Computed example of a mutant assay.
Amino acid sequence: MPAPIPVSISTAIMAAGRRLDQRGWVPATAGNFSMKLEAGRIAVTRSGVHKGFLQPEHVMVVDGEGRAEDPALRPSAETLLHCGIYRRFPGAQASLHGHSVANTVLSRRAGACVVLEGYELLKAFPGLETHEARIELPVLDNDQDIARMQRELDRRWDALERDGVAVPPGYLIRGHGVYVWAGSMDGALARLEALEFMLECELMQGRG
């Protein structure tokens, strides 16, 4: 019998759903969230559920390859992207995916990345201790083949590391949404809110 999801984990995921819903970042059934469990297991939101109204039964467990422990349950379609984050970044413990107006519009306009610089909230990203900083947030083309999209993302991350560039703990999917991760759910929420603030500023500046 698989170990149950700890109450603290399901509670944190449900609270994240309410918080993002209040900000309009997970409309309809959009978005997905996850947290890492022991022994390579991952707690992730189920497919087709409104994230503002999550209940404990809406959180399920997959392995590191995205396979459901309970085959009767269907995880979010992009579960493999959460698995890719945990596989690549061992310190990651929580990952959030949201769909705001700002990240959707800006990712449609962008090239290979969205540049953010000069913002006080850049301090929410690791290694940045001043607003006099710059990050290039990768923008990945949307693809219904999630495994192929993860391979492209790994290729982009490999290229950054070869160039000696720190991989930012977040990326955009063109016309689709944003992913962020951190060492805790609180950290992921803070990172997402900081990023969304900066993206909204960029969107508003572009209207002038």
Score class of each variant (00 low, 15 high):
6 P>R: 04
6 P>M: 08
7 V>W: 08
8 S>M: 10
8 S>G: 11
13 I>K: 00
16 A>L: 02
18 R>K: 15
21 D>C: 11
24 G>I: 06
27 P>C: 06
29 T>K: 03
30 A>Y: 10
32 N>P: 08
33 F>D: 02
34 S>F: 00
44 V>H: 00
46 R>L: 14
51 K>N: 04
54 L>E: 05
57 E>P: 07
57 E>D: 15
57 E>L: 10
59 V>S: 09
60 M>E: 08
61 V>Y: 01
64 G>R: 11
65 E>G: 13
66 G>K: 00
67 R>V: 12
69 E>G: 01
70 D>W: 03
72 A>I: 06
76 S>K: 03
77 A>R: 13
80 L>I: 12
82 H>N: 05
82 H>E: 00
83 C>H: 05
88 R>Q: 11
90 P>L: 08
92 A>R: 04
93 Q>N: 14
95 S>L: 07
96 L>T: 02
97 H>V: 07
103 N>I: 01
107 S>N: 03
108 R>F: 11
108 R>M: 15
109 R>D: 09
109 R>V: 12
110 A>I: 04
118 G>H: 09
120 E>L: 13
126 P>R: 06
127 G>C: 02
128 L>N: 02
132 E>W: 11
134 R>I: 03
134 R>S: 10
135 I>N: 02
136 E>Y: 01
137 L>Q: 01
137 L>T: 01
144 Q>G: 15
145 D>M: 05
149 M>P: 01
154 D>V: 11
155 R>E: 15
156 R>K: 14
159 A>P: 04
160 L>I: 07
161 E>S: 07
161 E>W: 00
161 E>A: 10
162 R>P: 06
162 R>I: 04
163 D>P: 05
166 A>I: 04
166 A>L: 07
168 P>K: 04
169 P>E: 01
169 P>I: 02
169 P>L: 01
170 G>Y: 07
184 S>E: 07
191 R>G: 06
193 E>M: 08
195 L>P: 01
198 M>Q: 06
199 L>M: 12
201 C>Y: 13
201 C>L: 15
203 L>Q: 03
204 M>R: 15
205 Q>K: 15
206 G>Q: 11
206 G>A: 14
208 G>M: 15
